[in-house]
Computed example of a mutant assay.
Amino acid sequence: IAIGLVGNFFSFLVFSSKDMRSVSSNVYLLLLACSDSFYLISVLFAKILSVLKCIYFTNSAIDPYNNSIVWCSIFQFILDLCSNYSTSLILAFTMERFIAIYLPIRFKDLCTVRRARLI
């Protein structure tokens, strides 16, 4: 998790520069770094809660993640959203590369930064 967060942080720094944001494929990679970071943070949060439950709250009913339907639902929604969003971004990035290879003449018209941001 730590290595992933550090790597995503550096990816965010690189892809968020003004020059890099002018290319549509870099927009996908910037958003992918953000989405993966949120996913790693949510996994870290889940692991910390489960470790705390095992060590400190073994006989206690204090466990917001497992005992609260609301928190469990919200947390699972965020976890699934980040995971599915990363997959969708990879699919969009792959489709853009497909267009670049098979329609190189129309690539600049079809794959714009504006469309990448909308997707």
Rank of each mutant, 00 (worst) to 15 (best):
K53M: 04
C82Q: 11
V51C: 14
F10A: 00
G7S: 10
L79Y: 09
Y65I: 07
D63T: 10
D80K: 09
Q76I: 13
S24L: 03
R97L: 10
I41G: 04
I69E: 08
T58F: 06
I119G: 02
K47T: 06
L49R: 11
T94Y: 15
Y56G: 02
L89S: 01
K108R: 13
N59K: 15
I62K: 09
C82H: 05
N66F: 12
S22E: 15
E96V: 09
D19W: 08
I3Q: 08
L5T: 09
D19F: 09
I99Y: 06
S68T: 08
V6N: 11
T112L: 04
M20K: 10
T112F: 10
A2E: 14
V14K: 03
S83H: 12
S86W: 05
V51L: 10
V27I: 09
T58H: 09
N59L: 13
K108C: 11
T94A: 09
L31I: 10
Y56F: 13
I74L: 15
K53C: 10
V43L: 13
A33L: 05
Y39C: 03
G4C: 13
A2R: 12
C34T: 02
K18E: 14
A92C: 14
L13Q: 06
C72Q: 03
A92M: 11
S50R: 15
I90G: 07
A33D: 03
F15H: 07
F75T: 05
M95E: 15
T87I: 04
I62F: 15
S42T: 13
V23I: 12
F98G: 06
S50L: 13
Y102N: 11
D109C: 00
A2H: 14
S83I: 00
S60H: 02
N67S: 14
I99D: 07
D36R: 10
P64M: 07
S37N: 08
N59I: 07
E96R: 05
L81Q: 01
F98K: 12
F57P: 00
T87D: 12
I74D: 12
M20G: 01
V23P: 01
T112E: 11
S86C: 05
G7E: 05
D109F: 13
A33F: 05
L110A: 12
Q76G: 02
C54K: 15
V113K: 03
V43A: 11
Y85I: 02
P104Y: 14
L91K: 14
S35M: 06
N8P: 00
G4A: 13
L52P: 00
I105C: 01
